[in-house]
Structures are given as C-alpha cells and as structure tokens.
C-alpha cells in the first residue's frame, strides 16, 4: 500500500503543529486515541469570543502517516469556520480528500473525534461558571 501524494505532503509539511494554552477559556482541547493502532491525537482550537469562529487550530499526533495527515488537514479545515460549521466535518470528507485506503479509515475517524472532543471541551468551558475573581475585575 502506498500513501497518496496529499498524505505525503501533509506528513512532510504538517500544518499547524504545536499547542495552545490548555487552561485558557477560549481554547478547546481534544485528546483522542485509537486502541486498534495505539495512535494518539491532540487537537486544539482557539475560538473568537464574539463570533464563535475558530481562529487558530493546532495539533500534535503520534501515529502513522495517515493519522498525521488527517489531523493536519483537520486543523486546516476548522480554521475560519464557526464551531457549528466545524462540527459538520465528517471523517469521509477527510478520506476523500486524502484518498485514504479502507485500512486507514480509522485515522480519519480519529480526526473527526478530535474535532468533536475539542469543541466539546470548549463548549463545556463556556457553560461553566466563570471564576468569580476574574469576572469581578
């Protein structure tokens, strides 16, 4: 099995590798893993407080080329989208874009999971009561 050119491109030049401040209230963090292959993927988003638009996205993935490419692509796609728009990204979109073979579909599933988990974390932070001390000032 050989990787598609797009996978190789993302693998060699991954977009948006890095991390954001996990404790910040406008940052959502998704950490997901696949027991099938032992891959682990962290995806973080920074959301604009007024518009709910994802302004920044970072990832770090330990896993195969397809997992790295899937998460790299995911960060590219969520940027500029609102959180609700980002939730509409499906793993099959990633499969198509990267021409992933059937055995690598779980990598795209992982990337979709990571987006959902990051957004879920962000939403939880928005619902949580703000720390009193920070709000009072």
């Amino acid at each position: 099995m050989s990787y598609s050119d797009k996978v190789i491109d993302h693998y060699n030049n991954p977009r948006n590798v890095g991390s954001l401040d996990k404790s910040s209230t406008d940052v959502g963090t998704g950490l997901v893993g696949a027991p099938e292959c032992g891959d682990v993927m962290k995806l973080q988003i920074k959301v604009n407080r007024e518009t709910n638009v994802i302004e920044e996205a970072k990832f770090k993935t330990f896993g195969c080329g397809s997992a790295i490419a899937s998460s790299s692509l995911a960060t590219e796609w969520v940027k500029g989208k609102t959180v609700d728009e980002a939730l509409s990204i499906k793993n099959m979109d990633i499969v198509k874009e990267l021409s992933l073979p059937p055995v690598k579909i779980h990598c795209s599933v992982l990337a979709e999971d990571a987006i959902r988990a990051a957004i879920g974390d962000w939403k939880k932070k928005q619902e949580a009561p703000k720390p009193v001390a920070a709000e009072a000032k």
Partner: peptide, 9 residues
Amino acid sequence: TGGVKKQIV
C-alpha cells in the same frame, strides 16, 4: 446525537 464521542480509551 451531536454529543462528544464516548472514548474507548
């Protein structure tokens, strides 16, 4: 369900 996936791990 629009929820966050139940993580296997």
